[in-house]
Design a protein around this nucleic acid. Structure first.
Lengths: 207, 207, 207, 207
DNA sequence: AATGAATGAGCCTTCATTCAT
DNA sequence: AATGAATGAAGGCTCATTCAT
């Protein structure tokens, strides 16, 4: 029975395992130059099954990317619902961005690669733009409740760019301890973007 | 005669042409998945010649990357020598980063791809780290001459990350008019990082 | 049904077929300059399959060589078990060496080529030395039971060299009727190596 | 002047050097898989020159083989003219075959390779058969002056095969000290082929 | 559902050969 | 005479994908 449960998994489990293996492979290779065979081996199935489930290599990769986006989105939503002021909600977004799971080397690598790929592939581009738009929308929404010094859209863009930039650079050094620093730098940027009220430094990261 | 001049060029010319074609191909495909044959065709030579000159695909790509770095570096050096204060020299670095040639879609795409590749390939990584170190060094040097509010190294990192982040996002939208905005956002970040003197908004971009 | 049986054979069959095709190709071309594609075509499969099964061209060739060695060895073993005296066992070895299957033009060509290749390639060399050692050991073992005139090791070496030499020359003329003559010459050499007892010419070849 | 003499050699010198480089390359690689470029480099000229002089790779190789044959032939002729009896002239042939220059690893390798190649290439075959015929003719001629026990043609073939066989095997072990042994074995074979006169062991190698 | 078997297409790379100088 | 420049042709190998079971 237990054996049967292990050898004959549910279809959804297989799919999850394949996506996990895909992200793992991409993350380790830091490149989309990963063979379906390698991914399948990692997932413990045949490469034919990957095609059976996802239709093709590209679809598998897109599914993996979608999974990344969804995970991030869920984390953001959860954190947002726990914060009460616009300012703390901004911090929640920042914390989500640099949460250990997101900031793990493999994940950062995958994001960067998807960013690059999105420039050439319409399908990847569409997917990534969903994330970009949502993040922008979130940032702008929270900023509207705060005394922004200057253009609000620029402020949102600045925060988003800072997050992405820190991501990109994180990939290079592969140092694990940069998380706190990334948060600090971004929070400082946010503070700088806000009109200087004397009591605005009350953010707190709860990674 | 003109024909002869076209059929038998100098070795250096061929190399330059191949590197140009490489960047063009990578830029258009937004990926390193470009065949040597395609690059050679674009350069008007046989693929065998590309190997003859560069030894292999990877060496060709590295040479292309090196050429990107060198071009950027030369631009920065030139602009730095024309600026007189630390603050204007910071702006010079920003301007160089977002100069039209650097901010052109193809160039941005190539940079992003190299960033991704650098995470997996030691050779690319080494090359990119040279650029990262140099930029950091430049930024810190100029910041030392200014009243930085907070940690100086964090400030330099913030600026660098902002530049990279704006690059990364630029790739996504492929809108050519974002240049000015990127400069404005970065300059505003810099101003925010400096201790607030009442007259510090006097920067001027001279792209 | 018959079609199905032909389109999806068992893995081992394919391997055998590929090895056979390899020896055929090498034999006909009298050279290792045979493309995997040609071999695959001869075996009725794609060249990709050859790589799938053997890993690479070299591995395929080594497998073919190994098959040659094994076939020879099996023949020798079979004939040895049927002979009863040392003298007739020596003849058995000779007969095996010049058996029609071994002495066929393609086989001789393959052997010669492997001999040449063994001088440069460690892998081939190792394989061939197995055969050499075994043959030497067999010869010396049988000679020990006979009144050898002179050094026993030299006698064994002489017989082995004679066999190889006749092989090599056989390749040149490609005349099929030389088999009997080769056996006669070698047997005569053996007789000459033995101390002249008045009744030692009673060998008989049973190829 | 001396410089001029070194940089501008005579055409014949260039040819010789190329042939020497060819044999060297083939000998070291133990294979005909040697690039013209490698040979040219070894000879200190451009690969284009090799084509200019010899017309193509094959012609260069044939010239190298011809040079091998000629060298051997000259040695045999010289030694024959110094010997006085048929028996010593036979020994002279043996000595020539196993002379250090002929028995050097590289030379043995080249011979073996040519033997293999001769089976497939008519041009190589024709060349090699010249050598075979000449050697056979020489051996038979000398044997006619001696009391051969048995068929004279078989005796000549036996000697020739023994020489070739010892060559072939020499390639495998690449041990330099086998020369004396090869001569001893061959001489013993010759003695065995001759009718047993009580005083026939008076051969002497003068390598 | 799952897989091993099989392949076609394509890429990197090598190399003999040619040609203008 | 001699060479660097340049190429066409070909080969080994990989891999996504299909198919019969």
């Amino acid at each position: 029975m237990a054996n049967g449960a292990r050898t004959r998994k549910k279809s959804a489990d297989r799919r999850d395992e394949l996506i996990r293996a895909t992200l793992e492979s991409i993350g380790e290779a830091c490149s989309l130059d990963v063979t379906v065979g390698e991914i399948a081996r990692r997932a413990g199935v045949s490469s034919a099954l990957a095609h059976h489930y996802f239709g093709g290599k590209d679809d598998l990769f897109l599914a993996a990317m979608r999974s990344l986006l969804t995970a991030f989105r869920n984390d953001v939503v959860a954190r947002l619902s726990e914060a009460e002021t616009s300012r703390t909600r901004l911090s929640a977004i920042v914390c989500a961005s640099f949460a250990p799971a997101q900031f793990a080397p493999n994940t950062v690598a995958a994001w960067t690669i998807f960013y690059a790929k999105a420039q050439s592939s319409p399908r990847y581009g569409r997917l990534l733009r969903v994330y970009v738009r949502r993040l922008r929308s979130n940032l702008q929404h929270e900023l509207r409740g705060l005394p922004v010094a200057g253009d609000l859209e620029d402020a949102a863009e600045a925060i988003a760019a800072m997050i992405d930039g820190l991501y990109l650079r994180q990939g290079l050094q592969r140092a694990p301890a940069e998380r706190e620093r990334a948060i600090a730098i971004t929070e400082k940027l946010i503070d700088g973007l806000l009109a200087h009220s004397p009591l605005d430094s009350g953010w707190r990261s709860r990674a």
